[in-house]
């Protein structure tokens, strides 16, 4: 007695023991299948505020679901599952589970900003999608995007030394994103650069890459800066 309407039930809502005996009765397989309901039983009241704490999400509460964003969306034209209006709605009510179901496509926003341009209530849907993508990274729902790794490495070096060393940023960025440290394009790039640079500069670059000198009297500035950024973030996220 298979479930005829099986296509109407998500797999994760089916519970079944393939082999099971209860009170001496064999109820293996479909004889014990239970379906868990698909009903939404509560909202997460704090979620909207949380997303508003991320850059781009500030105006999410203004949305009235007209659908202009989705209708104008470049990605929606490719994939009807890509629906900014819907994600904004889910964000407003705090339906995180539904949002997470689309985790693999929300980041695909190409930032054409047609939605932001057309929105009659100034919601900035493009920003909301960025905010959602960042929230998912932060929660570990999705892996960090390469750009996030780059940003982090960049900021780290600033905190430590008050300046960045291009070579080191690149090296660590490749490491964190699992890319080979020596890349063909990089070789060509360095080779060309070397041809035109005075030797003195080249030596200084090599030295700096190894010793990463700090900005003059940087002292505790890095820590202060780091604290300030942290505070700002916390204030924004509530």
């Amino acid at each position: 007695m298979a479930i005829h309407e099986k296509a109407l039930i998500e797999d994760e809502r089916l519970q079944q023991h393939d082999e099971l005996v209860v009170d001496g009765v064999d109820v293996s397989g479909h004889w014990n299948t239970m379906i868990s309901p698909r009903t939404v039983r509560d909202y997460d009241d704090d979620f909207e505020t949380k997303i508003q704490g991320f850059a781009g999400g500030e105006n999410v509460h203004r949305c009235w679901q007209c659908g202009s964003c989705t209708n104008s969306c470049t990605m929606y034209a490719q994939n009807v599952q890509f629906n900014p209006r819907y994600w904004i709605y889910l964000t407003r009510l705090g339906m995180k589970e539904e949002l997470v179901k689309d985790k693999d496509i929300i980041w695909q926003c190409v930032s054409c900003n047609k939605c932001t341009n057309i929105c009659p209530k100034d919601v900035k849907p493009e920003g909301v999608m960025k905010a959602l993508a960042h929230w998912m990274e932060e929660e570990g729902i999705t892996e960090k995007a390469p750009s996030t790794h780059f940003d982090e490495e960049f900021a780290d070096q600033i905190y430590k030394t008050g300046r960045i060393e291009d070579g080191k940023v690149m090296q660590n960025f490749f490491k964190k994103t699992g890319q080979p440290l020596v890349q063909e394009w990089l070789k060509v790039f360095i080779f060309r650069m070397m041809k035109h640079l005075p030797v003195k500069h080249l030596m200084a670059m090599g030295f700096n890459t190894i010793h990463t000198p700090r900005t003059k009297s940087w002292g505790k500035t890095g820590d202060v800066l780091k604290n300030y950024v942290r505070e700002q973030k916390e204030a924004a996220h509530g």
Binding site: R38, T39, V40, R41, Y43, Q65, Y86, Y89, L90
Partner: peptide, 12 residues
């Protein structure tokens, strides 16, 4: 029914 999410809701 949240007709945008297309799911039944039972909210306290």
């Amino acid at each position: 029914e949240d007709t945008l999410v297309k799911r039944p809701i039972v909210i306290p």
